[in-house]
């Protein structure tokens, strides 16, 4: 009976998740390129061999991972700080709460175009300020180190509100009498943060982490618009590489292989995260 009730949901999952995955797995065993006239030709594991030896895939994987870890880390820290601030009651809080959601509400493409202009060298406002202070203008999007920072900055700016919102919801679920009891027992406020707030917020942190990591590891639109993957492919992510292979190079077999490779890496990170969470839970009775 329970299986019957679950059937619609299961079928939907199979249709939107398993079927495309199987299709990709099949495609990754074919050469379907512009050279084969877009017709699939079975090539065994050739695409997978190419993936393992493809320095660009691994470089992009490292770049994607580095981007995800740094930007999600920053977003968690900033999001927690903002959530704590918005949880306190002060005048004008409602207005600030709504305003702080603004970056999250903007479409990524619009936001990325905005940053592209802000960071423009030499005509963007940031470089305008630099020049008026007598400092040299910075080629933000023309230098491999700065372009990477720019992508992290733009992503953090946009998605911190999302994290803050999730954590704020978590904070509001914590009963206030816990803090009162803690204060009665002589606990100090900052101890309360460590002993009550953070442990009780843990499930919300985990949800935010999983949502954001999955998004960050698959980041495409922000990078495509802000840097196009350049300069010197230093901001190219795996999603962008898979897209290039499919839409620009018309190499669908290899694009599917890159997507599956990316999926394996994503799965591995999610698994690591769950394991870490279990150890974390185990460490505290």
């Amino acid at each position: 009976m329970s299986l019957l009730l679950m059937a619609p949901a299961l079928l939907l999952l199979l249709a939107v998740f398993l079927w495309p995955m199987l299709d990709y797995a099949w495609l990754s065993l074919q050469a379907q390129t512009v050279f084969t006239g877009l017709k699939p030709v079975p090539v065994g594991l050739a695409n997978w061999e190419r993936l393992l030896g493809d320095g660009r895939f691994w470089q992009d994987a490292a770049q994607t991972l580095r981007f995800a870890v740094v930007s999600v880390g920053l977003e968690l820290l900033l999001g927690l700080a903002i959530a704590l601030l918005l949880h306190q009651s002060w005048r004008g809080r409602g207005l600030v709460r709504s305003l702080s959601l603004l970056p999250w509400a903007l479409p990524t493409t619009v936001m990325a175009l905005g940053w592209r202009w802000i960071l423009n060298d030499p005509n963007g406002p940031i470089n305008g300020v630099m020049q008026s202070l007598g400092l040299p203008s910075l080629p933000f999007l023309a230098s491999t180190q700065l372009a990477w920072l720019a992508v992290v900055l733009a992503d953090t700016w946009k998605t911190t509100p999302f994290v803050a919102l999730l954590l704020l919801a978590g904070l509001q679920m914590i009963p206030t009498d816990l803090y009162e009891a803690f204060a009665l027992e002589g606990g100090r406020p900052w101890q309360g943060l460590r002993r009550i707030t953070l442990p009780l917020l843990r499930p919300y942190v985990l949800i935010a982490l999983i949502f954001r990591l999955a998004q960050a590891l698959g980041v495409f639109d922000l990078v495509a618009v802000l840097t196009g993957g350049g300069p010197a492919s230093s901001t190219e992510t795996l999603a962008l590489y898979a897209y290039l292979n499919a839409m620009r190079f018309l190499d669908f077999g290899y694009s599917a292989t890159v997507m599956l490779g990316m999926f394996v890496l994503l799965l591995a990170s999610a698994l690591l995260l769950v394991l870490a969470q279990q150890r974390w839970r185990g460490a505290r009775p």
Partner: peptide
């Protein structure tokens, strides 16, 4: 027919030269 990819290979290496990498 593979021009897009040939050009991409060139662009990637040239961009590395221009940025001093």
């Amino acid at each position: 027919p593979g021009y897009a990819q040939l050009s991409d290979i060139l662009q990637r290496q040239l961009s590395s030269v221009i940025t001093g990498e």
